[in-house]
Amino acid sequence: MDIDAIDRRLLAALQKEGRITNAELAERVNLSPSACHRRVQRLESEGYISGFVALLNARRLGRPTTVFVEITLSGQADELLEAFERAVTTVPDILECHLMAGSADYLLKVIAEDTEDFARIHRRHLARLPGVAQMHSSFALRTVRQTTAIPV
């Protein structure tokens, strides 16, 4: 299904303010509330909207340190990749894991309290991930831009 300009306006509004009421959203995109509700339901059922979440402030929750970890595996066999990916999903400190093309096989985004906490995460979790041959960690000094909004 193709999405039209109204669908794009709905998606853009919901990305900025996910708690907006259906009535406010309908007014913003110039639809009746019932038509707005039907469109949002369709966008959800067709996979354009994958869910609604609250975005938490990691700093306020005592996890201000972001570390990007490049992982190179010892091989590329499907079994090794699958084992690595399964293990990564069990580590709550890993916010993102991306299979990469380039110098590393995977790029992880990890949050921690501080450098000591990252050392604990490294020892207990990262160093025990299956098939890891090399690991390079880079600490973010400051976040210049962070968004979850996808251009629509």
Score class of each variant (00 low, 15 high):
residue 2 D to S: 14
residue 3 I to M: 01
residue 4 D to W: 12
residue 7 D to P: 01
residue 11 L to K: 01
residue 12 A to Y: 02
residue 15 Q to L: 01
residue 15 Q to C: 10
residue 15 Q to V: 00
residue 17 E to A: 04
residue 20 I to V: 14
residue 22 N to H: 02
residue 23 A to N: 11
residue 24 E to K: 11
residue 25 L to T: 05
residue 27 E to H: 01
residue 28 R to Y: 09
residue 28 R to M: 06
residue 29 V to H: 12
residue 29 V to S: 13
residue 30 N to T: 09
residue 30 N to H: 13
residue 34 S to Q: 11
residue 37 H to L: 14
residue 37 H to N: 15
residue 39 R to P: 10
residue 40 V to S: 08
residue 41 Q to R: 15
residue 41 Q to C: 10
residue 42 R to L: 13
residue 43 L to I: 08
residue 45 S to I: 06
residue 46 E to T: 14
residue 46 E to K: 11
residue 47 G to P: 14
residue 47 G to Y: 13
residue 47 G to Q: 02
residue 48 Y to V: 07
residue 48 Y to G: 07
residue 49 I to V: 14
residue 49 I to M: 10
residue 50 S to L: 15
residue 50 S to I: 15
residue 52 F to W: 03
residue 52 F to Y: 11
residue 53 V to K: 03
residue 54 A to N: 09
residue 54 A to K: 14
residue 55 L to Y: 14
residue 56 L to E: 04
residue 56 L to D: 04
residue 61 L to R: 12
residue 63 R to P: 00
residue 63 R to W: 05
residue 64 P to G: 12
residue 68 F to A: 10
residue 69 V to Q: 01
residue 70 E to D: 15
residue 71 I to A: 09
residue 75 G to C: 10
residue 77 A to Y: 04
residue 79 E to T: 15
residue 82 E to I: 10
residue 82 E to C: 13
residue 84 F to A: 00
residue 84 F to D: 01
residue 84 F to K: 01
residue 85 E to F: 00
residue 85 E to L: 00
residue 87 A to Y: 08
residue 90 T to A: 06
residue 92 P to T: 11
residue 93 D to M: 07
residue 95 L to N: 09
residue 95 L to D: 07
residue 96 E to K: 05
residue 96 E to T: 02
residue 97 C to F: 13
residue 100 M to I: 07
residue 101 A to G: 14
residue 101 A to K: 02
residue 101 A to H: 08
residue 101 A to W: 08
residue 103 S to G: 06
residue 104 A to K: 03
residue 104 A to W: 07
residue 105 D to K: 02
residue 106 Y to D: 00
residue 107 L to I: 14
residue 107 L to V: 12
residue 108 L to R: 05
residue 109 K to C: 12
residue 110 V to R: 02
residue 113 E to G: 12
residue 117 D to H: 06
residue 118 F to I: 06
residue 119 A to D: 15
residue 120 R to V: 08
residue 120 R to H: 11
residue 122 H to N: 14
residue 122 H to R: 15
residue 123 R to S: 04
residue 125 H to C: 06
residue 126 L to T: 03
residue 127 A to V: 03
residue 127 A to F: 06
residue 128 R to Y: 07
residue 128 R to P: 05
residue 129 L to G: 03
residue 131 G to C: 03
residue 134 Q to G: 08
residue 137 S to I: 11
residue 138 S to D: 01
residue 138 S to F: 13
residue 139 F to P: 01
residue 139 F to I: 13
residue 140 A to Q: 02
residue 144 V to A: 10
residue 145 R to Y: 06
residue 147 T to D: 00
residue 147 T to V: 00
residue 149 A to P: 10
residue 151 P to N: 07
residue 152 V to I: 12
